[in-house]
Simulated assay, not measured.
Amino acid sequence: MYPSSALGEFLRSRRARVRPEEVGLSSGVKHRRVAGLRREELAPLAGVSVGYYTRLEQGQSPNVSDEVLDSVARVLRLDDDEVAHLHRLARVTRASEKVRPERLRPGIKLMVDSFTEAPAIAVGRRGDILAWNRLAHALLAPHWPFEGGKKPNFVRIDFLELDFSRALYADWEQKARDDIAYLEGSLSRFPGDEGLSALIEELLTLSPEFHAMWTEHPVSNCASISRDYRHPDVGVMTLTAELLRTPDDEGQGVTVFQAEAGSPSRERLRRLAGLVTVAAGQAAREGSSA
């Protein structure tokens, strides 16, 4: 699946979004065989030959210049995140090296545990939750065990545990597209990660929703996202998730969820923290008496 067809799939998805009249061309016949711009329409606008652009979509131009990529991006009206994604895809080689298995650094675990008033998780490049504090557990996956065993993958939860995820996220479709954008970004940076490719193949097979959205190739850096969470115990909370990338660039990061000061969401988050504290104390007492 990767990387031979990835660049072409991305470019075709973005060509399909651009109407000829948006770039100063006549729409031509009423019913066009190809949605959006044709290759022969895009190429001269980008200042390259049709043959060259065709080879680019086919992944046969490994030495394409930044100038050409930027020119294509301009015609396709890509945003900053999409331009960066295009450049990464164009630089991926066919013989991608395998990547090392993900291992959570002890310091990252300590950082996650240090947050006591905000949900926090350490997340891997495949969407695996590598560590979480109790408040994040109560918010994102209370039906999973907090300690011991394998922790969940948030993309699997969102697409394969639909009853839970559709109830949790007020805008499930946007959350789902953000999940796919996260995987798209990871795959462009770590094309040799066999586990990541296997996860995508699994979801393409098991989830019709994932399959449909994957063909759209949504792109986002996922650095700061605000969304509404519907928690059964405290109600709806508007939280901003800030993703802090680790400096070693192995695809891991720490996500912290915060509510605006003085807002109803902040008060509800405090209430949830109180419930978590009570539950943790009760569990500790039960454990000591066992």
Rank of each mutant, 00 (worst) to 15 (best):
E173Y: 00
E102S: 14
D178G: 09
H31Q: 06
V155L: 12
M111E: 02
T277F: 01
E82W: 02
A280R: 14
A176H: 07
A35P: 04
L130T: 09
A280T: 14
P247F: 09
L69Q: 01
K151Q: 13
E267Y: 00
G127N: 09
A120C: 12
W214K: 04
L11S: 05
P142C: 10
S61E: 15
Y229P: 07
L196I: 06
D249I: 01
M111D: 01
Q174A: 12
R15S: 01
S114V: 04
K151W: 00
F10R: 06
T93F: 01
D128T: 12
N221G: 15
L187E: 11
Q282P: 00
E97H: 08
A118H: 14
R14A: 03
S71I: 03
G124L: 08
S27M: 02
L69P: 00
R77F: 03
T255S: 13
S263G: 06
R177E: 14
D171K: 08
T246F: 08
A138Q: 10
D66Y: 00
Y229G: 07
A284G: 07
R19W: 00
P119D: 06
L110E: 12
E286Q: 15
V50T: 15
L140W: 02
V123A: 09
E67Q: 11
E286P: 00
L11P: 08
L199F: 06
V68Q: 00
A284L: 14
Y169T: 06
L269A: 01
E82N: 02
D193Q: 12
E40L: 14
R55K: 14
D193S: 10
D179W: 05
V23Q: 09
R189Y: 07
E250T: 12
E260F: 03
S13C: 02
L37D: 12
S49L: 12
Q252Y: 01
T246E: 07
L183D: 09
D66H: 04
H85M: 03
A136V: 11
V256M: 04
L160R: 06
D171V: 10
M1V: 06
V68A: 01
P218S: 11
L135M: 08
V278H: 06
A16D: 03
R268I: 01
P264A: 08
P247Q: 11
P218T: 10
F154Y: 14
V278E: 13
A46T: 07
E102I: 15
G107P: 00
V155Q: 09
G192F: 14
V48R: 12
A273M: 01
L76Q: 06
V29C: 01
G36C: 03
K98Q: 14
T246A: 07
R19A: 13
A84W: 00
T255F: 00
R77V: 00
R105C: 09
S265V: 04
A35V: 00
G36Y: 04
V99L: 10
L25Q: 11
V75S: 06
D228H: 12
E286S: 14
G185A: 09
E286D: 15
K98S: 15
R126C: 13
F210S: 05
F115Y: 14
G192R: 14
V92R: 11
I200G: 02
V92E: 08
K109A: 15
R103Q: 15
S263M: 07
A90S: 14
L11G: 05
V50C: 10
S96H: 12
S197M: 11
S13M: 02
D233S: 11
S49A: 09
V23T: 04
D228Y: 04
E97R: 13
T240W: 02
V234L: 01
T238M: 03
